[in-house]
């Protein structure tokens, strides 16, 4: 780790903080300051009465200047005190309850799709044009095009309900029963991964095909290296670089709540499902907080990925 690398990392982290600040402002604007309709009406939710609306107006201080409103709201979010308006519970406690499910789903799926994506992508590239490649590519396209909620619902119906191979949804904490935790997550993991396996397999496949033609690989062959060594140390090493950064970004998006759909279909009660329920009730404080959380993970991942990329590809460091 040279001074150069450390300076690079620090710069990225600083700019990440600035972006988060800007994200918070934008999120705030989306929910509170968009100049149309009565913000109190919107914040009070669909089921509000007239006195609720008046209370909201007072609590949120819509008579205050916008920037003061912003500071007040952000203060609540950052101190963890933000309250859901329709349920009178702390948003953060709800997030704490749901996070393990989301994390289990996200991490498990991310590992599965990364490994399978690389395996299928490699097979597809090395057997390009042959039957196995065509099958993999076709399956990838279907995986990319089939929405997760359809896939999940279909799997739930056939494999869980009809054939009873898998449980009917729900989440079991790992601390409670590891085996159950595992079996309950299998279908959700698979549903979540299908889309990404398709994408990663295709990205890696094109990447490998391109690198196979590269001058540096030709040189490696001309050096008399064994085909295995050429493949692993030269071809894969080069083609994996873009995949790893992609994976970092996708993982962040998924941990930050893009698991919504799968959670809803399988009733896992993670933060994604919490987001969806809040959306349904037009309960804005949770939506606001979860949006910020999601953005936070993405920004963090961006910075980490940049650093990792520089570690993997020395050309970037200069």
């Amino acid at each position: 780790m040279t001074v150069q690398m450390v300076a690079f990392a620090v710069k990225r982290l600083v700019s990440a903080v600035l972006v988060l600040f800007a994200v918070s402002i934008l999120t705030f604007l989306i929910f509170v300051a968009i100049p149309n309709g009565d913000p109190a009406l919107r914040l009070a939710g669909r089921t509000a009465t007239a006195s609720d609306i008046a209370a909201v107006r007072h609590t949120y201080g819509f008579d205050l200047p916008v920037w003061q409103q912003y500071l007040k709201t952000m203060g609540e979010v950052l101190s963890g005190n933000i309250q859901s308006y329709t349920q009178h519970v702390s948003v953060f406690s709800q997030i704490e309850r749901g996070f393990p499910a989301t994390l289990s789903l996200a991490l498990g799926a991310a590992i599965i799709w990364m490994v399978l994506g690389i395996v299928f992508g490699l097979i597809g590239a090395l057997r390009a044009g042959k039957a196995s490649d065509v099958t993999i590519t076709t399956a990838s396209f279907i995986g990319i095009s089939a929405p997760a909620f359809v896939v999940g619902a279909v799997l739930l119906y056939f494999l869980a309900f009809k054939l009873k191979i898998f449980p009917n949804g729900g989440y079991v904490p790992i601390t409670q029963d590891p085996v159950s935790w595992f079996t309950h997550l299998l279908l959700p993991w698979f549903t979540m991964s299908i889309l990404y396996i398709g994408i990663y397999a295709q990205v890696l496949r094109s990447g490998v095909l391109e690198v196979l033609d590269a001058d540096s690989v030709r040189t490696a062959r001309a050096k008399g290296l064994s085909p295995t060594r050429v493949l692993l140390k030269h071809v894969l090493r080069l083609s994996l670089i873009p995949i790893i950064s992609l994976w970092g970004l996708d993982l962040a998006a998924v941990v930050g709540g893009a698991t919504v759909i799968v959670e809803v279909v399988f009733n896992l009660n993670g933060i994604g499902q919490y987001l969806q329920q809040s959306v349904g009730a037009l309960d804005v404080p949770p939506v606001l907080t979860l949006t910020l959380l999601g953005a936070f993970f993405v920004v963090l991942a961006n910075a980490v990925v940049d650093v990792v990329y520089a570690l993997l590809d020395p050309r970037i460091r200069s």
């Binding site: 590269a214 140390k233 080069l238 670089i241 993997l312 590809d313």
Partner: peptide, 15 residues
């Protein structure tokens, strides 16, 4: 042994 035309791309950049 063989050496090629474009030295810019002939060596693997990550090693």
């Amino acid at each position: 042994s063989m050496i090629f035309q474009d030295p810019m791309s002939a060596l693997t950049p990550v090693y």
